[in-house]
């Protein structure tokens, strides 16, 4: 059972889908904060890394799985609120470029803190390792985590879209990402909306941390750094301004890199980053608003 033309088997396809699902969640996490703050959070990967270290510590201390996941959520949410309070809030209103540089600094800062605490070799999170075992679905071996990742990501996205479409705070968030000033004039509370976006984005980072540590149990200080860079590219590809295009962009880039990485020989797949970023630059030049959006271009000269 193979797609013989592209030399892709079903397992690669399933793994690529799972990677796409995880990247889609990261893209939503980055997109939510960008929507209300116009801030590209370069330090998003370090939130995931913090959650992963929480899981690793919990499994080292012999905590049960649920306690590890609670610790992961608690630490990621605390860290994202701290980040908002200490860095994002004082920088509110600065140009997007300044904020990008600032989160770049925060990313390096957090990475070094992790290096200091946990050392360059990192720690191993083993408590969820059983999810890596395969199950057989109509003759194809698929790792359980692949199914879990797709299901969880779909669940998160549905829950999020219900929140955005059906609740007052969701309405406020959508209004704020269209036009923050006008939304405030009409009575939307800035701090509450931003706080909500930061919390949701942090919760997604925690979910991503859980799923990535299952796939890569070795947690090092640069955990999720490469993923964040690729997801950022995906978000730009899809279109920064709207959540759905950003999600699609994240999924597309995860699926694409997963598929190419699984099917190409190493001497070609090592150049995937070049293809990905070449595509990003091309999209920025041809369709500055993103592939999956209509109208409203990014500022250009």
């Amino acid at each position: 059972m193979t797609l013989a033309v592209l030399n892709i088997d079903w397992q690669t396809l399933a793994d690529a889908t799972a990677l796409g699902a995880i990247y889609a969640l990261m893209a939503v996490g980055i997109g939510l904060v960008f929507g209300v703050l116009r801030l590209v959070n370069f330090a998003y990967g370090q939130l995931v890394m913090a959650g992963a270290f929480a899981l690793a510590l919990a499994s080292q201390w012999g905590w049960p799985v649920w306690a590890g996941i609670v610790l992961c959520f608690a630490s990621v949410l605390t860290l994202s609120l701290l980040m908002d309070r200490l860095v994002f809030r004082p920088l509110r209103g600065h140009s997007p470029a300044v904020m990008l540089v600032a989160t770049f600094a925060v990313a390096f800062l957090l990475q070094s803190v992790a290096l200091l605490w946990f050392g360059p070799l990192g720690k191993i999170a083993t408590s969820l390792a059983y999810l890596n075992r395969p199950v057989t679905v109509s003759g194809v071996d698929i790792r359980k985590i692949t199914i879990v990742a797709v299901v969880v990501a779909a669940g998160c996205l549905v829950a999020l879209s219900v929140l955005l479409e059906r609740t007052t705070i969701g309405l406020h968030m959508r209004a704020s990402s269209l036009d923050f000033q006008t939304a405030r004039l009409l009575g939307v509370r800035a701090n509450r909306v931003i706080g909500m976006a930061v919390l949701l984005s942090g919760a997604l980072a925690a979910v991503v941390a859980v799923m990535l540590t299952v796939q890569t149990p070795l947690v090092t200080p640069d955990f999720a750094l490469r993923d964040t860079i690729i997801v950022l590219a995906g978000v730009v590809l899809g279109g920064m301004n709207r959540p759905i295009p950003a999600t699609l962009g994240g999924f597309a880039i995860g699926f694409g890199t997963g598929l190419l990485g699984g099917s190409l020989p190493t001497n070609q797949s090592q150049y995937i980053p070049s293809f990905v970023f070449g595509a990003v630059i091309l999209v920025l030049l041809v369709r500055p608003g993103g592939l999956f959006t209509r109208g409203r271009a990014v500022e250009r000269v």
Binding site: V40, S95, P96, A97, L100, I229, L232, A233, V236, M240, Q270, Y271, P273, S274, V276, F277, G278, V280, I281, L284, L285, P288, V298, E299, R300, V301
Partner: peptide
């Protein structure tokens, strides 16, 4: 090609250049 971009787009695109150079 890149000097047509400004702001955030320029930041991300030049970051892409760094990634490509490093990769190659």
């Amino acid at each position: 090609p890149l000097m047509r971009l400004s702001g955030l787009a320029a930041g991300i695109a030049t970051f892409g250049v760094l990634e490509i150079t490093h990769n190659l």
